[in-house]
């Protein structure tokens, strides 16, 4: 036991000897960057509001309690819409993510020179942009409503699912693929027998994982007019109806807890 302590100390000494200056320089730069960042934020902040915050928070809190339970009648439909946006959006995304993932994986892409970069580009652009921004854009293009939300969730999820899936495809055991190829199977048969069974568990895990995330995200899409319970949240916020806001937040919280529970159950059953 004493040795392991010694070992720990030794590791640290070695690093200190060689990297001491570097380490201090990094700390210095880091601190400077942080101070500068903080100054930027503070320079555009009205600090009077900040000191007033506890009072405002207490005020809002006071008005938000108790939640207006009767408002629940009007929440069932948007809740149903939210669930549909998340579920159908995930299904649509998966249908598109599967081919993209196969085109992007090094071991299954038909052309590493041309097609793979295109597939990777699709993945990157889909992943870099938050679903709320996609929703904002789609509301402008195809009009407000749950359809825009559905498409936004689908587009955002393609990249996420395709990335995780193509990494799973690249990690498969090539010997199994080789064995199926050696039987004289066609390209598609090799896919169906050699590759798909190996990535199926990953695929199921990814689907449920993304569905869980999508349910969370689709609760706020309504803020930009893309349907779901966020629409009611936006309306209540605009009219300063705090008891309604608190009820909606409770509902969202419950939805998130339920979805996490469902996804944990499903993942447990599959793997």
């Amino acid at each position: 036991m004493a040795i392991s302590t010694n070992d720990g100390v030794k590791v640290w000494q070695r690093r200190d000897r060689n990297g001491q200056l570097k380490l201090w320089a990094m700390w210095l730069v880091g601190t400077a960057v942080f101070m500068w960042s903080w100054q930027q934020i503070s320079s555009v902040t009205t600090w009077a509001f900040f000191w007033d915050a506890p009072r405002i928070a207490a005020d809002i809190g006071g008005r938000a309690v108790p939640p207006r339970w009767s408002y629940m009648d009007q929440l069932w439909e948007p809740l149903w819409d939210t669930l549909n946006i998340a579920t159908l959006g995930t299904v649509m995304a998966l249908m598109m993510a599967v081919p993209v993932a196969f085109l992007a994986a090094r071991n299954t892409t038909p052309s590493a020179m041309f097609i793979r970069p295109i597939a990777l580009l699709i993945i990157v652009s889909s992943r870099s942009i938050n679903s709320l921004i996609w929703a904002l854009l789609l509301v402008k293009i195809i009009g407000p409503g749950i359809f825009a939300g559905l498409i936004a969730i689908a587009i955002r999820s393609i990249g996420f699912c395709a990335k995780l899936l193509y990494e799973a495809i690249e990690e498969i055991d090539e010997a199994q693929v080789e064995a199926i190829t050696a039987t004289g199977a066609s390209r598609w048969q090799v896919m169906a027998y050699g590759i798909v069974p190996q990535v199926l568990p990953a695929f199921a895990g990814i689907s449920v994982f993304r569905w869980d995330i999508n349910l969370r995200e689709s609760t706020v899409l309504g803020l930009v007019g893309a349907g779901g319970i966020g629409l009611q949240l936006q309306g209540s916020l605009n009219t300063l109806a705090w008891p309604q806001v608190s009820l909606i937040l409770i509902i969202i919280l419950l939805a998130v807890i339920v979805s996490e529970w469902v996804s944990a159950k499903v993942r447990g059953a599959i793997i």
Binding site: E178, I180, T181, T183, Q198, P201
Partner: peptide, 16 residues
């Protein structure tokens, strides 16, 4: 290839 059966070192069965 159908006329050439192959047997592998680590069996190479499709495990799942």
């Amino acid at each position: 290839r159908r006329r050439m059966g192959m047997i592998f070192q680590e069996y190479a069965l499709v495990e799942r």
